[in-house]
Structure formats: C-alpha cells, structure tokens
Write a protein that binds this DNA or RNA. Sequence first.
DNA 1: CCTATTTATGGTGGTATTGCCATAAATGCA
DNA 2: TGCATTTATGGCAATACCACCATAAATAGG
Lengths: 102, 102
Amino acid sequence: MRRYEARAAIAKALAHPSRLLILETLEKKERSVTELTDLVGADQSTVSKHLSVLRQAGLVDLRKEGVTTFYRVKVCCLSGFWQCIETVLRENLKDQRAAIGR
Amino acid sequence: MRRYEARAAIAKALAHPSRLLILETLEKKERSVTELTDLVGADQSTVSKHLSVLRQAGLVDLRKEGVTTFYRVKVCCLSGFWQCIETVLRENLKDQRAAIGR
DNA sequence: CCTATTTATGGTGGTATTGCCATAAATGCA
DNA sequence: TGCATTTATGGCAATACCACCATAAATAGG
C-alpha cells in the first residue's frame, strides 16, 4: 500500500487546474513567480504555494537569479500523462453525446 | 481555464491510493464490489464511493449481473499515466540519494 | 414469504486543501 | 541608507475530501 501512497502523492500534485496550467506553461520555458502569477490570475502567495506543491512532488525545479526565482519542469514524462487525460476526456464526450442522442 | 478544470477532475479521481490500487487491479480483469472491498481493506461503503468517483471520471465502467456489480476499466490509456508516475518516483529517489550522499 | 447477500446512499466527524491577507526576508537600485 | 521589487510563509476561514456507521433497495435461495 505504501507504493500506492507514493503514486497518489504525485497524482495529488496534478489534481488542480492552476497547477496543470502552470505545468503546461513551464513545459515551454522557465518562468518567474511573477509571470506565473499573472498567468494564473490568483494571489501571488497562492501561486507560490502551488509551486511549492509541484516542487515537493518533484515535478518542477527552480533556479534563483538575484531576487527572482525561475521555475521549470523537472521531468520529461508529462506527455504520457497529458495524452491519458485527453483520451479520457474525449471518451467521456463521446459517451455524453451518445447518451443524449438516444 | 475550463479546460484545465476538466483535466484536473480526472487527475483528482486518480489522487487516492485506494483508487489507484483498484484501477490497477481492474486492469487485469473485472471485479465485484465485494472482491474490491476485500482487496482494499476498507469499509464496503467507502469502496463503493471510491468506485463512484472513478466512474464519474469515466475511468471505469460497470456491468450488473443479478445482485452483484462488476467493475472494469473503461479506458486503455492508463499505461501512459503509470509510466509517468513511476518515472517521477524514480527521479525523486535518485535525487534523495544524491542529497544524502553529499 | 422470510432471510441472507450485495451494493448504494445519507449522515457525521475528522482531516486536508485552498485562497487571500499580512508580513518577513532577500536583493537591487538610487 | 532608504525604498521598491520579488518570493515565501504563517494565519485564518471556507470548502472539499474521506472513513465509518446505519440503512435502504434489489435480488437470490430456501
């Protein structure tokens, strides 16, 4: 069961819309907290905590340059995750349509 | 942002150790609620609710046969998810070792 | 018909998550 | 030094999640 707790901890870090947005953005290039705060549109402290969650899970890494902190994606396996999610969403949509059409 | 909420809903369904155990078990073959309750080792009502969460997310499907309900995996994309999680866990372990060794 | 089995659901208490505010710490610049 | 900028953290209230208990509903068997 220990094994599944470790896995669930990663999934939990992925289980928030703002964090998914952040992750996908960081996949393109690194960003400062200020930039990510503008992107997400929440309080700076809120974004900082989201970043902390992603970091604890080992999904992102940071690089300090003077007073600003640049975050970047640490792992290279996210495409598998995105694909899985998108597949499920497509299936669900298809089922919904089928249910309505009947 | 709507798009990320839909994605996060799927990730949320994956963000619990019991649900991950259930999913991985169902990948092999369909199971009844009783079987899954024994497997997880929680209350039957708890397992039933976990299954409801997985179903709402579109991750599992059910088939009723008399009084028993058989659940089965509905999507075929989970391997991408497992691989991503495992990769992250391996990376984290490696980093931990490196941090201790220094 | 009565009973046992199987599953789902309402209720409840405890815990965790989330968001914002205020603020501290660190850095850079005039 | 004084001040602005950038992040991180503690505090707190609202919400969501989770586990169990009790129980209802449906079916199968005697």
